[in-house]
């Protein structure tokens, strides 16, 4: 981010406080981030029509959404600049929610009378 550094270097006036410079730097971060987010959204929209392995597409969607998710919380929501405790508090909720959703998804099977899909990997007497 040459631009940012240049700007900081060329700040000649000593009466500009540090936090103003910090906020200026954030402007560029925010713009770059939003461009990336939009680009990812565009990729997501296109990728679902591409005729390749659907599991690959699915995995890509998961990864891309996670990247978007983390981008927003890390920069837009200031976790990058805040104290670690904020991140920890949020992660407790996020991890528990993710775990709960996953466990629920595994507990319900597509076939109402059949075993959960994951169990088809196991010997039938375990269903």
């Amino acid at each position: 981010m040459a631009t940012t550094r240049d700007m900081a270097d060329t700040q000649q006036k000593s009466d500009v406080p540090d936090y103003i410079i910090e906020e200026h730097k954030k402007y560029f971060t925010f713009f770059n981030l939003s461009i990336a987010l939009i680009a990812i959204t565009g990729i997501e929209l296109v990728i679902i029509y591409v005729p390749i392995n659907k599991w690959f597409v699915f995995s890509s969607l998961v990864v891309l959404s996670t990247v978007k998710f983390l981008g927003v919380i890390w920069w837009f929501m200031h976790l990058r600049w805040d104290r670690a405790l904020c991140t920890i508090v949020f992660l407790i909720g996020l991890i528990l929610a993710t775990g709960t959703v996953t466990a629920l998804m595994l507990l319900f099977s597509r076939d109402p009378d059949g075993p959960p899909e994951i169990m088809t990997l196991l010997p039938p007497f375990l269903w």
Binding site: L96, L107, P116, I118, M119, F125, L126, W127
Partner: peptide, 17 residues
């Protein structure tokens, strides 16, 4: 948070669960 289904052992959960 990881044990809720023990209230549901008789509801016909699978063996693994």
């Amino acid at each position: 948070f990881a044990v809720w289904s023990h209230h549901m052992f008789t509801t016909g959960l699978g063996v693994v669960a």
